[in-house]
């Protein structure tokens, strides 16, 4: 049986994968939100939508970040359980909140702080649960 403990190194790689994930989401959003609220009528709309997405440079930069993330994420999965890796990846929500505080000077409501605290607690609890498995 392989060791599946979350070490600090694995955790940092997970955070790096998160940064790539957030960046690719940002790029993809940039390429998809070309106009607000287009009418939803049918399959033809979908075709037009994809045509616009594919012609955006943001889409291709985002795709590159996605490929890097795929490589990193697969190697992380070779080390730890899926039911540990996926919850820990929710750390990206905390990263996004930090970015909006530090760089976008957004105000964070109390409810949002509570949410951030819950995510952080959850990440710690899940990480500790991966260490517990080692015991016989």
């Amino acid at each position: 049986m392989l060791k599946r403990k979350v070490t600090l190194k694995i955790f940092l790689f997970l955070v790096l994968a998160d940064v790539l994930e957030t960046f690719h989401q940002f790029c993809f959003k940039k390429s998809a939100l070309f106009k607000k609220d287009p009418p939803l009528t049918g399959a033809y709309d979908l075709l037009v939508f994809f045509e616009v997405v594919f012609s955006s440079p943001f889409f291709w930069i985002g795709l590159l970040a996605l490929i890097m993330m795929f490589i990193l994420w697969s190697t992380i999965l070779s080390k730890i359980d899926l039911s540990v890796a996926v919850p820990i990846a929710s750390f990206s929500y905390i990263l996004v909140a930090l970015v909006s505080i530090l760089f976008l000077h957004e105000t964070i409501t109390l409810l949002r702080w509570v949410g951030i605290f819950l995510i952080l607690t959850g990440v710690i609890v899940v990480s500790v649960s991966s260490c517990e498995r080692e015991r016989p």
């Binding site: 919850p87 949002r112 509570v114 949410g115 819950l118 959850g122 990440v123 710690i124 899940v126 517990e132």
Partner: peptide, 20 residues
């Protein structure tokens, strides 16, 4: 997936709901 991992996962889901 033992109780502790479930608790952590549910805390995260609740946290994300509040944050978003």
């Amino acid at each position: 997936v033992r109780r502790m991992r479930w608790v952590g996962t549910l805390l995260i889901v609740l946290g994300i709901t509040l944050v978003t």
